[in-house]
Amino acid sequence: MTRSADSPLVPRLRPFGTTIFASMSALAARTGAINLGQGFPDTDGPVEVLEAAARAIRAGHNQYPPGRGIAPLREAIAEHQRRWYGLSYDPATQVLVTAGATEALTAAILALCDTGDEVVVLEPTYDSYTAAIALARAVPRPVRLRHPSATEPGYRLAEADLRAAITDRTRLLLINTPHNPTGHVLGPDELDAVARVAVEHDLVVITDEVYEHLLFGGRPYVPLTTLPGMAERTLQISSAGKTFSITGWKIGWVCSTPELVAAVTTAKQFLTYVNGAPFQWAVAEGLALPDERFAGLSRGMEAQHDVLLPGLVAAGMTVHPTEGTYFVTADVAPLGYDDAVDFCWRLPDLCGVVAVPSSVFYADPTGARSLVRFAFCKRPEILAEAAERLAGLRTR
């Protein structure tokens, strides 16, 4: 028996439907347009990592791995956290391997939230966050990053806005930095503000750090958990997909206290249980690559950003600065469009490019309706062609 004449879905999941990424990728495939919508690279990652996966398959690492992940990967993750951030995690009790960061985030929210609990999220908000919150029967409380302006050239998180979102039902803060879709990296003052609020209200913080190695201008990444009072209340979540351009492998992880990791494991074991056995061996080798290889990955992504940017500017868009990730946000209002959804559906016909309307990342898109997210995690020659096509919009 269906739950309604319209859909068998339970009400809390009805708003989600097909993701905007799937819709825009289908549009790109149907029209033959250059897909700058969905954030996946069009090249493979470091050859050492790819070859390690092939070796692992041939070596017979193709059955269920241990529930928390193979020991060499958990050890490699713990060493990665020590090497880059000076953090100390016991790989036996404080590291959990997951099916990408999305599963880690979903398991954490399911494990830690009950019906009616509130989760504070930064807005614009990556769409899987609100879906996971709905699965837990919890409630999202968005805190909008303030948009770039004449006085503030970049996005920023205001402490007053964060404090205004806290209620007696707040259970979690979910902090994404480097931030998708804006490319903003929370600075020292913003991190301090999050830490102050979390400690004062005794909140658990989930940090989505999947773009930790894709910061631009040589800027170092500073995890929130390194701030005073945060180690005991922070769940660090990251993955190999974005760093190594292997998004299809879905190997992520959680690092935190033994108690918090155990809680997430309880939920995670009934989602995928385990995944990607040979890929876990390969990621362990990838995390041990020399520092220069990581720096090269970041420089390469920044160079790709610099290929696309002139096309957006030449088209007449207002381009918001990005400090990392795969993405850049542009305002298409100067082109005469006040609805980015309409603009993005028209874009393949206008110039043969696909992008994603940023308004879908807002609970209330007022003030953001004309914003568009472009992904630059593509080959330079593809980005150059896209830039040329986009530049032609000015003449239309």
Rank of each mutant, 00 (worst) to 15 (best):
E259R: 08
V95Q: 09
Q304R: 15
R379V: 03
N176L: 06
E259A: 15
D117A: 03
L350N: 03
A56M: 13
W345F: 13
P258I: 05
Q269F: 12
A136D: 05
S298I: 03
V139W: 05
R3D: 00
N275Y: 01
A282V: 00
Y126H: 07
R12G: 01
G39Q: 07
T130Y: 01
A198R: 00
A240I: 00
R74F: 05
L105G: 09
A108F: 02
A384F: 08
V354G: 02
L112D: 10
A330I: 11
T18F: 07
L145M: 13
I251V: 15
P46H: 01
E232K: 15
A134W: 12
E190W: 09
T31D: 04
V353R: 05
G392R: 13
G316V: 13
I70K: 08
E209R: 04
V143K: 06
L309P: 06
R169I: 03
A54H: 09
V119G: 01
H179F: 07
A59T: 03
T257Q: 10
F16L: 01
T366F: 01
Y155A: 10
R14N: 00
A375R: 04
L371S: 05
W84R: 09
N35P: 01
L105M: 13
L312F: 05
T257F: 04
K268M: 04
R55I: 08
P223Y: 10
L309W: 14
M317D: 05
E75A: 14
Q94S: 12
P41H: 03
T322K: 07
Y337C: 06
G392P: 04
L172R: 13
I77R: 14
G336T: 12
D339S: 11
V204A: 14
L271T: 11
G241W: 00
S245E: 01
T247V: 03
H147I: 09
